[in-house]
Amino acid sequence: MAFDFIAAALDKRRSEGLIRSRKTINSAQGPLIEIAGQHYINFSSNDYLAMRRSSVVMQAWVDGVSEYGGGSGASPLVTGYTNAHQALEEYIATELNRDKVLLFNSGFAANQAVCQALFAQKHSEFQDLIIADKLMHASFIEGAQGSLAKLSRFKHNDLQHLQRLLNTNIQSPQQSVLVATEGVFSMDGDQAPLPELAIKTKESNAWLMVDDAHGFGTLGENGRGVIEAHNMTQQQVPILMATFGKAIGTAGAFVAGSADLIDYLINFAKHYIYSTAMPAAQAYATLMSLQAKQNSERRTILAQRIEQFKSLAIQAGLSLIPSNSAIQPLLIGDAKQASLASEKLKSLGLWVTAIRYPTVPKNTDRLRITLTAAHEPRDIQALVDALQIVLQENKKVIV
């Protein structure tokens, strides 16, 4: 019968311990969440600066809805682009020293838009190239696969492998070549060697794109991400994408670059042209969050929590994947064992999500621990104590 594959695919996922399901959050206050009447300390949130429920963001939403209404009412090229959107774009462009910025409804849409707008047609007799880090986010990889460019992937943060791919695949200066990486990798929490990547891409007449969804807001003196942390210019990183749904505490995303790049996306990026614009109230709340004075203090607190967790984890003998960011993965190596460890932690009042294949490569299933400025020192201690208990009970878990 038609579509029999649906039930078969789900049965296969269940048998492998890889089925996905949703949990309804009844309430969220500070680091606590309530699910099915039970309360947990949440170590699976990307709200790194705890801005989502801050007084600044909450009040900005109220003021924004009062001024602009609940939605935008149209696509940006019709009547959906307001002074709130313009103000947010101009502020980010100034902060990042970029010519222009373009807002998107999600990072997924932004990544897809870049790939499919820049590589929607053949520009010469030679095939254009996209060369992405092996751990690049699925939204970008899917966008690249749907483009007319040839997609190659270099080993994670491996500059020598990248160079070999550049040498092998570039046949003419007429080819458009895009090298893509993440600022902070979403599953491992480590960072890309951006200065070195910028040098290699320039030498090969390629462009470098950085997806800084997990660095924007947390890194750099003013929280402007890896670009600020490394003082990277627009010439070094011609395309920058970042999101607002993590450290900024709202939703949506942006692409920053040259005036020509942004104007090109406005005219050729279907994800932008044919989507209703983000609500103006959302753009206003995002701007207020970016300008909030408490961001600096919250970044300091977050850094303290990261150092506390890493120090206690070392003392406890936990084997963490090396990371200096708010993302602290603990490798398990087996999907079912990772799920079991997650369930045991829940029984102790801690919400730590198991990340399994295909989100991560096979045999790298892990507990993805995320720390925020909302966590207290006692929360971090409770987490490490619970991890020790759970991992000792489960002898198959890699520690």
Rank of each mutant, 00 (worst) to 15 (best):
A2K: 15
I6D: 10
L10W: 07
R14D: 14
E16K: 13
T24Q: 08
I33T: 04
E34L: 10
I35W: 02
N42Q: 00
V56R: 11
S72Y: 02
L88T: 00
A93G: 13
N97K: 05
K100N: 13
A117L: 14
E125G: 11
L135T: 01
M136W: 09
A144M: 02
A144V: 01
Q145T: 04
A149L: 02
K150W: 10
F154P: 06
Q160Y: 11
L162M: 04
I170S: 03
S176E: 00
A192M: 07
E196W: 03
V210W: 02
D211E: 01
A213W: 04
H214A: 11
G217M: 15
H230N: 12
Q235V: 15
Q236N: 07
I239M: 04
I248A: 15
A256T: 00
G257T: 14
H271V: 05
Y274R: 10
A281C: 15
Q282E: 10
Q282M: 15
L290M: 14
E297Y: 13
T300C: 07
L302Y: 03
R305K: 14
A316M: 11
G317C: 06
L318N: 08
L318I: 00
Q328D: 02
I332Y: 06
I332P: 01
K336R: 14
K336I: 15
Q337Y: 06
K344W: 01
S347E: 15
I355S: 09
T370K: 14
T372Y: 00
A373L: 14
E376P: 07
I380N: 00
A382L: 05
A382S: 08
V384R: 00
V390T: 10
Q392T: 15
V399G: 07
